[in-house]
Each structure stands twice: as structure tokens, then as C-alpha cells.
Write a protein that binds this DNA or RNA. Structure first.
Lengths: 345, 345
DNA sequence: TGGATGCGTCGAAGCGTTTCGACGAACCGT
DNA sequence: ACGGTTCGTCGAAACGCTTCGACGCATCCA
């Protein structure tokens, strides 16, 4: 494997000249530069990443701390993919640090090894000790999500308030007055899972602002529980005409329960999936109308935000909140009128 | 940030002694080792990853070349997650290289930078130029999937033949004689996508071995196409009683078409999803019986296989084929008897 | 009792870059 | 004609580790 010394020898210049030719940090005579490039090409030279990092004190690596990829939906996958590509295009590599939120010690140790110039933190909770660890280690970071008090910590997140406002307004505009919200589980809310907490608050607020009574349920992430919760909702408010769900797995249960009661979508009940993706929506029949989680955009933004901290030359990227976008499906229609209230057999 | 020199000074020993105390490569007096550990602890020392890599000529990083995470299923996500964790537990970091199969040049350049000690290659095609690039760069690798001619190239893969044998036998045992197979798209087969090619061959073979006539269709990865293909299958063979599908997205279309024809699952038609996961299966109603893709196990095996090449001390991991495991759902039952053949209205 | 062996430690030479300071040459303004 | 810049290049010192050879001292076996 060719080193920079080999290139220098082949081009008849010193090692530092080659380095400057590569980095452009100092001017090089065009003719010399040509010779150097030719030598690099014939030798197939690529600078050794480790040596470069050691000398320059920058690894050109960013780390992504994630709890788990996967799950259904690929929203997380979409995000990770976008992050990796953006990083690559910026000349960075992405390393995966699979740590749960409670493994702050491991995170600290890795951070101290200085393998990563910066860290992306997925699934940030309202109170997140990992933030403290990273700040103590003086490693630049960007949160995906937000702590309770964002202050001026760098972050990107979904704009749950605006997303929910759009969702509720849309349904209200179609005449819906009895709207329910299916959230993530109570455990996740207790753990301070931002999306669940913020969406719940936003839903209540939006409904109240429209002069309506919010009906909201937590729900474990599973079709079975989604079904049970839907049954409960329908029993609680037989006048229910719309369900907003941010729980992808539970949504399948929502469909199942409605079907089993002979309630049609959207004839009897409209269903709107928020913070999900149209791809997941098409798995249901009729295709779920969704508010598409901006996973890829968040990924790119997060990388930009982080890199802008690493490289002072970049223009700083302010914290941003991105709303989900409404993607039409077939699961939303006008509210049925009162005399249509279905009778249970 | 403390360096090994700081630790050495604090412990009153030389730098090399600290190094040996960490690596265990040479014996150190217990008392000395204690002092060193104490110093490391109070200084919060973690060895600098770049310096270590440069000096030892091993980065302790492995790269995963993946086409794209995301899509549904989380089968890929499951795999990536397992890889990252296994790598972490073995003291390695995982970097993501998002490159398509035709970006072999970029892969070569990255490989030459020696950032990664080894490479994991997802979605290997029957003829894959990336293999040649990696071999030329002398970077150890392990394929997830197999080229046409595996020879003794390191790889791990799903055992499609055995998986399909189990699937077909299971259905035949329940009296099914008219069994159809819904594959991935014709484009993917043309591109030499291993799972599609191997499964198709295995299905034909299994059916023939049972004295049955294979009925097989390619299908784009979407519910819509799944539905159309199912319609075609039912029209082609009205006596059809079972469908095997390895196309997760299309499976939703299979369900939709059967429902729209008033055919019950599994009363009229049994459905078996192969190379998928029970999690995806539960999204459908009735829950899809699946043959669970061993994503996590493949991930761990792939890492072990790669690391065994990097570290001669490890016991070598031979190429392995892992079959999918049957996970009961509610979508399979005995074949209906002939007089039950449903009439189209 | 003496040569071989093993233990515990040290010093120093790398690993392959980047980057700082220096230096000659050419060019500038005055 | 002379300081002052700028250009283009070089040499050498880091960067923070690993690892090789060497060395003093015990221990061991004959």
C-alpha cells in the first residue's frame, strides 16, 4: 500500500509538498501539482485515515447513538440511511454506537477515545443523562429530539405541535367533532419519550382550542393493544368519528377492531396516522392517510447541524423543528352525521 | 484529555509499561499494575483510538456496505442492529458505507484508506464486482448472501433451499397440492438478487419432488402488485389452496385480493410468508404464519466470520447457511377439499 | 557455581500523516 | 536600490500509541 512518502519520491518533491497539494492549504505550482497527482494516480494512493486523523486531530467520523434500528416502518431506517449518506457526501464516516439511554458510561468511554469528532443522539428523552456525559467529554453533539429544556443545545426534531394542529384542523374541517388520539405506551411517557409527551400535550391543546373535548389513550406498541384501545374508545364515545394515531403498530389493531365491528373506514370512522410514512400506510386497506415523518430530512439536518459545529467555516445550522406532511390516503372522509351513529348489535 | 504519558508519569513507570499493562502482552508485577490502573482511573484515561490504530496497524473498525436500510420489515434493521452489537461486544466499531453495488470505485478508495480492518457486504448479487475490488485491495470481507460460485469465499446466508423445503412440505402435509409462489420482481432476478433466484429454483424443485406442478410469479415489491399477482394466480389456477410469499410488501396485497374475493384465510387459501418476521406477520389479520428470517443470527455470524479472519487467534468460522424458522400464525390450515372450490360470482 | 531462562521494566524507533517555521526567489512599491 | 510581501517548497517536529530489543535481577538445573 502506497504511502505519501512513496508519492513524494515518485513526484520528486517533499512529503509536505504532497500534503499541501492534497489539502490545498498552501499554493503549489500547477506543474508540480500535476506531477503529484500523476504519481498518486499511478500508485493508487489514498491517504491513511488513521495517520491523517492522528496528525490533524480530527477523525472525520461522526457517531450515531441509537437505541434500535428496525421496528416496522423504517422511519428509523430512513433516518439512519439519510444520515449515512449525508455524512459520506461531506467526507465523513458514520459509526454506529448501539447503546441504550442508560449506558452513559460506555458512551463516555467511547467519546474519550476520540474516535468520533461528534455525536448524533437519537431518541432523546426529556431528561437525558447522555447529554451531560457528552458535554463533560467536550464532544460536539446534536440531538434528534429535545430534552425538556432545549435551551441552546443543538437539536433537530419533529414539530409535534404543528403536526398535531394540522391533523386536528384537517379533521375538524371535515366536520369531525369527536376525535380520539392513540398514543404510545404509558411506560414511554413515563420514561420521558419526547414524541409521546409532546404529541399528547399538543393534541389536548388543539382540541381544546377548537372547543372540543380531547379523548386520548396510551397504548402499547402492538396491534393487539391497538385493537383493545380502539374498543375502549368506541365504547367510551360511541359518537367517535375520527382516530388520530401516532402508534404505527397499534394502527393495525385500530383497523382490525373497526372491521370487526362492521365500521367502515372512512365511512364510519376516519383514521389518520401521524409520524409514520405512506409506505406503512399502504400496508393497510384502505390505505392509511398519513402525516409523513420527515425522517430523511431530519437526518440530513442533524448531520449539517453537527458538522457546522465541527467546522467553524460552515455556516451554523440553527435548531429546527420540522412538521410532518399530510400524505393523502383513503382513510379519511367527512364525519358521518349524527343519525348515522352505528348501533352495536 | 489524558494521554498514556500522563498515566505513566502518574504511576511512576514508563509509557511502554502502561501499554503492556493495558494489553497484557507482557507480564506486569501486580503491584505495578495496580498503580497503573489507579492512575488511569483518576485521570479518566481512555487510549486514543487513532494513535492506537496507527501504531498497531489495526483500526478495530469494520465496515458494513449496505444498499439501503429502511423499507419495511426491519429484517434489514434487525440484521444491522445485531451486527453493531456483536461488533461492539468484540471491541470493534461499525461504520456504515452506503454504496450501491455499482459504486465499486468508491468502495475501493475507502478500503485503501484503511479505516476498516474488514468489510461486511450486504445484498450480494450472484455476480458482484465489489468482491473483486475488495480482494484486490486485500481487505478481508464476509458476504451476506453468496455469489454464484461461492468457492471458499467467506459468507453467511439464508438457507433458501431448506427453508423452501420446509415450507412446501408443511403445506403438502396439510393436504395442499396447488401451491403458488410469490417472488420478488423480475428486475431483481435479472440483477442476480440471490434470495429471489435461489428461492425460485428451490420452490420449483421442492414442488417437483412432491410430484406437484410449481406455479411461480415474480412481483414488484408493493401491495398493489401483490394484489394484481394474486388475482392472476387465482385466475390461472382456481384450485389454488396455498400461497407462499417471500415478498413482504406484496403479501399485504395478497391478503387484500383474497379478502375482496370473499376468500377466507386460511379457510379457502393458506398463506405462508417466508424470509420475513413474525412482527410483520402480526400486522395482518389473521396474523401471517411466517418463516422467520434469521437476520440477527446472520448478523452475529457474519461478524464472527469476519473477525475470525482478522484475528488468527480466533477459531475460524466456516461458511454457514441458516434456515428460516417456522413461526405459527393463523394463516395456514388444511387444504379445502375439492368440492369447496369457490365459485366466482 | 555458572550458564541458561524467565520476569518485569525501560528506552527508542516506528506508524503515516499534518503543520509550523524557514528559506530562496520573484515581485512590489517607493 | 532596498526593505517588505507573496509564492513555492522543504525539513522537522509533532500526534499518542505499539512493539522490539535490551537489561538487570531472580530462579533454575546441572
Amino acid at each position: 500500500m502506497a504511502t505519501i512518502t512513496d508519492v513524494a519520491r515518485a513526484a520528486g518533491v517533499s512529503v509536505s509538498t504532497v500534503s499541501y497539494a492534497i489539502s490545498g492549504a498552501r499554493p503549489i505550482r500547477p506543474e508540480t501539482r500535476e506531477r503529484i497527482h500523476a504519481a498518486m494516480h499511478t500508485l493508487g494512493f489514498q491517504p491513511n485515515a488513521m495517520a491523517r486523523s492522528l496528525a490533524s486531530r480530527r477523525s472525520r467520523v461522526i457517531a450515531l447513538i441509537y437505541p434500535q434500528i428496525g421496528g416496522i416502518g423504517g422511519t428509523a431506517g430512513e433516518f439512519v440511511g439519510a444520515v449515512a449518506e449525508r455524512a459520506r457526501d461531506a467526507g465523513y464516516q458514520l459509526v454506529l454506537w448501539p447503546f441504550r439511554a442508560d449506558q452513559a458510561d460506555d458512551i463516555r468511554n467511547l467519546a474519550r477515545q476520540r474516535m468520533a469528532d461528534g455525536v448524533l443522539l437519537m431518541e432523546v428523552c426529556l431528561d437525558d443523562e447522555r447529554i451531560d456525559v457528552l458535554e463533560a467529554a467536550e464532544v460536539p453533539y446534536t440531538m434528534i429530539g429535545r430534552t425538556r429544556d432545549v435551551a441552546d443545545r443543538p437539536s433537530v426534531d419533529i414539530d409535534f405541535a404543528s403536526t398535531m394542529a394540522t391533523a386536528v384542523s384537517h379533521l375538524v374541517g371535515l366536520g369531525h367533532r369527536h376525535i380520539a388520539f392513540v398514543n404510545h405506551s404509558a411506560d414511554q411517557i413515563k420514561a420521558g419519550y419526547g414524541p409521546a409527551v409532546r404529541s399528547a400535550a399538543a393534541f389536548d391543546e388543539c382540541m381544546t382550542a377548537h372547543g372540543l373535548v380531547p379523548l386520548s389513550r396510551t397504548c402499547d406498541d402492538s396491534p393487539v393493544m391497538g385493537r383493545a384501545v380502539t374498543a375502549d374508545l368506541l365504547d367510551t364515545d360511541p359518537g367517535l368519528t375520527a382516530i388520530v394515531t401516532m402508534n404505527e403498530l397499534a394502527t393495525f389493531g385500530v383497523y382490525a377492531e373497526l372491521a370487526s365491528r362492521g365500521l367502515s373506514i372512512p365511512g364510519d370512522v376516519s383514521v389518520l396516522g401521524v409520524v409514520t410514512s405512506p409506505g406503512v400506510g399502504t400496508l393497510s386497506y384502505p390505505p392509511l392517510t398519513t402525516m409523513h415523518s420527515p425522517g430523511a430530512e431530519l437526518g440530513r439536518l442533524a448531520v449539517d447541524c453537527l458538522l457546522s459545529q465541527l467546522d467553524p467555516a460552515r455556516t451554523p445550522v440553527p435548531n429546527q423543528l420540522i412538521p410532518c406532511v399530510l400524505e393523502p390516503g383513503m382513510s379519511i372522509g367527512p364525519a358521518r352525521t349524527d343519525q348515522d351513529v352505528p348501533q352495536r348489535p
